[in-house]
Structure formats: C-alpha cells, structure tokens
C-alpha cells in the first residue's frame, strides 16, 4: 500500500511543567487504512513516547479514544486519515471537560450524572430468580434498544453547546440512558427518574441543537431522547396537578 506523510498538529498540555496548552507537529506516514488512532500510536511508539491519550479496543465499542479531530468530536479508532480534508490534521482533547494531560480529559461530572438518573431497573418487587426471566417481546426490546447502545464515549458532551455553558445540565448521554430505562417494559422507576431530571439541573436547558445526535457514533439519538423526556416530564407534571392523589403512581 502506498504511503504518504501527513502532518498531525497535536494538543499538548503537561500539567507539571507547562503553564498552558501548546501544539506540537508530527509527520506521520499514512496509508489508506490508517486511522487517526494508528497515527497517534505511531507518534507514541516511534517519535515521542510522552504523548498521552487513552485507547483500548480500537473497534469502536470501548469508548476510550474520543477526541476532537479537526474540531469534530470522533472516536479516533474509526476515522480514516484519508477521509480528512485539509493538509494538516489537528487533534484536540474533547471540549467542555477539564484537560488532565495532552489529550486526556476528566469526566467524573458525567459519572455523577449517570448515577443520578438511577441507571438500573427499578422494580417495586424483584421477582425471585426461580421465577425465570421477565417476559419481553422483540417489539418491547425495540422500544429502548436504540438508547441502550450508548457507550459513554462523551462525544455528545464535547459537541453540546448547552453543556459548554451550563455544566449542571444533565446532558445528552445521561438523558438517553434515563430514557432507555423509562422505556424498558420491565422498569417501574419512571416517576422517580422523571422527578429527578425535571428539576432545574435536568433537561430543560436543551435547546434541541441536535449536535449530540450528529456526532454520536452509535446512533443513540440523545437529542430525540431529551425531547421525549421533556414530553414525559410535562405529562407527569400535569398529572400531578390534575390528579394529585394518583401522583405517586
């Protein structure tokens, strides 16, 4: 396969020695099947072992290697260099998160928000295992399948203009996961979850820009999930006003 050289302009930030971020250029040999992550590994293994980034599965499922490439949040293991426009490839850490080092960001804020939406089945009573599985038809699985595909890669937070301004916004992935459980026929925690996420710190700030769904590598469509959550939360609110006695249901 033919090789050519491409310049990678990579964001550097060394917390123990740098006063601020800089860029460093590297020339990397590229073939038609080279993905951006391969180029970063070439730099790390042969040019500069200090370059720091996360990766593992290199098959688009572990969610470790999200970065902004030429300004767009992507999984770097899934973007072929030959498909990128322009002479120089710019690699930045994902936006809207604190940068720990070079291309590594910290997203404990998401982990807290994920825990906050109670991302597990809530049942009034758990059936014993001896009773077997809860029945669920293929159609009932289909109702939440799309949102169950979230790999927590954080690209949607990197793309979200609302999260960039207001970090108390629940954000796309955590909302999608909340919606996934609410739409699961086995779950009985919708009221509890909607109560939590329809507060000021929840979903209302989403202005439906939709960037989250554009960058999602797994077609989870968090933007649609947030709009559906708004509808469900509004209905819950109306119900509580009109039928206060049944509100706990």
């Amino acid at each position: 396969m033919a090789e050519r050289e491409v310049v990678f302009r990579v964001h550097r930030y060394r917390p123990e020695s740098d006063r601020g971020p800089t860029y460093q250029d590297y020339r990397v040999p590229i073939r038609d099947d080279t993905v951006v992550l391969d180029a970063l590994n070439h730099i790390k293994d042969t040019l500069d072992p200090t370059l720091t980034f996360r990766w593992s599965c290199r098959m688009g499922i572990c969610g470790s290697c999200g970065m902004n490439v030429n300004g767009t949040p992507v999984l770097t293991c899934g973007v072929f260099v030959k498909d990128l426009r322009g002479g120089v490839v710019t690699v930045d850490p994902m936006a809207n998160f604190p940068v720990l080092k070079d291309l590594v960001v910290e997203f404990d804020d998401f982990m807290r928000k994920l825990q906050g939406v109670k991302p597990f089945l809530i049942r009034k009573e758990d059936a014993p295992l001896s009773a077997g599985e809860y029945r669920q038809t293929p159609e009932q699985v289909e109702a939440y399948r799309q949102q169950s595909m979230c790999i927590n890669c954080m690209l949607c937070y990197s793309a979200c203009p609302v999260y960039s301004r207001t970090d108390h916004f629940l954000g796309p992935a955590a909302s999608a996961i909340a919606y996934r459980y609410i739409k699961d026929s086995r779950d009985e925690g919708a009221d509890e979850r909607l109560g939590r996420i329809s507060t000021k710190t929840g979903i209302w700030e989403c202005t439906f820009v939709g960037e989250c769904s554009v960058v999602c590598p797994k077609d989870v469509d968090p933007a649609a999930a947030i709009q559906s959550l708004k509808v469900l939360a509004s209905m819950r609110h109306m119900r509580r006003i009109l039928m206060p006695k049944s509100a706990s249901r």
């Binding site: 758990d126 295992l129 029945r135 669920q136 038809t137 293929p138 009932q140 699985v141 459980y181 086995r186």
Partner: peptide, 22 residues
C-alpha cells in the same frame, strides 16, 4: 441459567423470541 436470569433482572437487553422468552 440463574446468571442469565439475574442479568435479565438487572436490565440486560437479551434478544427475545416472539413469545418474550430469551
């Protein structure tokens, strides 16, 4: 078998037969 059912009770989206079984 009980581990499959346990995972199911914890929300794992197993593929289903038309009758709703795993």
């Amino acid at each position: 078998p009980e581990e499959i059912v346990q995972l199911e009770h914890w929300g794992c989206p197993w593929s289903r037969d038309p009758d709703g079984r795993v």
